[in-house]
Every structure is written in structure tokens, then in C-alpha cells.
Simulated assay, not measured.
Amino acid sequence: MGRSETVYGKILAVALTIILCSNAAAYAEEVTVRNATGEYTLLSGYGITHRGFGDTRTQVQTYDTIARFGWFLSDETGRGWYRGRHELLMELPLHLTVDPRVRSMTGGYLLGSWKFTSLEDFAPYVFAGGGVLFVDLGLPTMGSRLDFSYQGGTGVQYFIAKDKAVSLEYRYHHISNAGTASPNEPLNSSKILLGITLFR
């Protein structure tokens, strides 16, 4: 074997070693809720208004589908049971009403969240925020099709893999036109949602 073949063989061996080591390091660094940069969640569930809560008078039932994109704003902070991460959530909701009639509501939400990371198999979280909705319910008591929402709730994610979880959450959900039109009956409701989350 000539000198050039020997040098070439050594360079090839070093290159393969670097590639294998870098791949091993990449696989060793599994994506989990503790080191992910973000999450993608699809939620679906049921909601119903609470007649008599505030000025809510109309019963409205919905089937809800929400696409959620989350960005973690911090590494793990805190100690003990309250250790967790700050997260910014953007949601694209579709609320399909089935009572009193089949109509739809859609728009966008921006939420802040604290996700607890101190448990091995579960990640509880709390969240709050709001957004804008185009409401096509045909209810004369609402006064406007352009409405606003604020909401808050809590949930838990159960890990079915290091980077995947099943999500279950409850949220209080408010819709009104914020006094921009009259009349202004709000819709105060509860929603129960189930979904799947991927961490990236």
C-alpha cells in the first residue's frame, strides 16, 4: 500500500469516528419536556356554557378542535415539586357549535403557561391568556361577530414516550364583544379537552 493510500485511510477512519461519535451524542441527547425547544399539540373535546354565570343566559354546546404551538422560554427553574419551565402558547381554535344550532367560531389565542417538570411520567401545567374570535352563532344577544376571549385552565400530560405525551385539560372560556357593541351577552363556559403532544 502506498503512502497516499495510508494517509487517505487514516483520514477516512478519523472522519468515520467523528461521524459515529457525533451521531451517538445526538442520540444520547433525547428530546424530552426538560430540554425541548417547543411542542406541537392537537386537542379535541367538548364545551358547554354556564347559564346564570355572570350575564350568560344562552346554552351553547361546542365540539372543539385546537391546534397548539408552544415555545419554551426558559430552561428548568425552581426546585422540588414546583420545578418547571415557562412556555408561550399560540392556538388556532375551531369551535363547532351544535346547540342551539350548527355554527362555528374561529380565531387565535395567545397564552402563557407554566409546565411542571419535577415528575417522571407526568407534566402538570397551568395556563392563561386570550385572543380574538370570529363568532357566527346567529345570536342577536351577542351584538357583534368580532369578539374577544379570555381563558385559563390546567392540565396534565402523561408521557407515552420520551418525546410524546397524551394531554388532558380543563379550561374556563369567556367570549364577549368587550363592550364594543350592544347587546353584549357573554358566553362563559367550561371545556374538557384531550389531545396528543409531540416535543421537539
Rank of each mutant, 00 (worst) to 15 (best):
G107M: 03
L193Y: 10
V98S: 05
R103Q: 13
L146A: 06
Y150W: 15
T77E: 04
H173I: 00
F72A: 08
T106V: 10
T77V: 15
G70S: 15
S182C: 02
F159T: 12
L119W: 11
S74Y: 00
A181W: 00
E76T: 09
E91I: 03
T117W: 12
T180N: 07
S118P: 07
A165I: 13
K162I: 01
S149F: 10
S118R: 00
L110P: 07
W81D: 02
G152T: 09
L92M: 14
M105L: 13
F122P: 10
D75F: 01
W71R: 15
G129P: 09
S104I: 06
F116E: 04
L89M: 11
A178W: 07
V156G: 13
F134C: 02
E91V: 00
V102T: 14
N177H: 05
L193G: 07
N188D: 10
D75A: 08
A165D: 09
P186L: 05
W71P: 00
T117L: 00
G130M: 08
G107E: 01
T197I: 07
S104Y: 15
G84Y: 11
F116T: 02
G112L: 08
E185V: 01
G131M: 10
R85M: 07
L110N: 03
E87Q: 15
F134I: 04
D99R: 01
G155H: 12
V102D: 12
V102S: 14
Q157V: 13
P93D: 06
Y82S: 14
R83M: 11
L96K: 05
